[in-house]
């Protein structure tokens, strides 16, 4: 009898596999980023590109764009695995479902949200964000985008078996994103006005840990329903 796979090994195996697959499908990484840039460009063009107008809406626009591009890329999280049957294999593996779900979410975050965070300063510059807001923007994205991935994964898991899951997914998930959006934009705004924003960050961090602990179980339950 083989010793059962340790949780860490299982996590690493799945993480490595998902990263490898993502890197061989570079379009999937690049397209959400392009979408992110284009949405921000559209905002700048539509409101008239006046520097002070841009400055006031910058935190909100950057965050909404980040949120939408995350949503766009989320569908890929379980869809391919569901279609080619590897999701069943994962669910039937001896390791608990929440481990594999967490590994997949982490892999997804690394290939979609991390590049987005690195790109954000550039777009903040285009949106004429106040220089004091950069650090806050970076920190809120760093803490906030994992929440988006975790909550989004629940929606993806619920809709993965449906043929037309796309629009439904946004209907399910976007309302749940509102608290993160509120806190993150408020933090960036506070930073640009030179007032303290550590409190906002602390609440975002609390939400992050809460969703880190609970979301994988909800995703596991949802996946079991979807493969039923």
């Amino acid at each position: 009898m083989n010793p059962a796979l340790s949780y860490r090994q299982a996590f690493n195996t799945i993480l490595k596999r998902d990263l490898k697959i993502a890197l061989r499908h570079r379009d999937d990484i690049v397209n959400p980023l392009l979408f992110f840039i284009i949405v921000i460009t559209l905002f700048a063009i539509s409101v008239g590109a006046m520097p002070n107008v841009l400055m006031t809406i910058a935190p909100g626009v950057i965050w909404v764009a980040a949120l939408l591009s995350t949503l766009l890329s989320l569908e890929r999280l379980f869809k391919n695995d569901y279609q080619d049957g590897s999701l069943e294999q994962l669910l039937l593996s001896p390791c608990p479902v929440f481990i594999l779900v967490l590994a997949k979410i982490v892999a997804h975050w690394l290939v979609t949200s991390l590049p987005l965070i690195l790109l954000a300063p550039l777009l903040a510059m285009m949106m004429n964000l106040h220089p004091d807001g950069y650090l806050a923007l970076f920190l809120t994205l760093l803490l906030g985008t994992p929440i988006l991935s975790l909550l989004g994964a629940i929606g993806v898991a619920l809709t993965v078996a449906l043929k037309k899951g796309g629009v439904l997914l946004s209907l399910l998930i976007l309302p749940l994103y509102i608290p993160v959006l509120i806190l993150a934009t408020a933090a960036v705004e506070a930073a640009t006005m030179n007032s303290p924003y550590q409190g906002h960050l602390a609440i975002i961090a609390a939400l992050f840990f809460a969703s880190l602990i609970t979301a994988p179980f909800a995703v596991g339950a949802a996946l079991k329903v979807s493969t039923n």
């Binding site: 629940i154 619920l158 749940l176 909800a218 339950a221 949802a222 329903v225 979807s226 039923n228």
Partner: peptide
């Protein structure tokens, strides 16, 4: 199946 999916969503909500 739909009802179970909805149950998960309602709890998350």
């Amino acid at each position: 199946q739909g009802a179970k999916a909805v149950s998960v969503l309602a709890l998350v909500g």
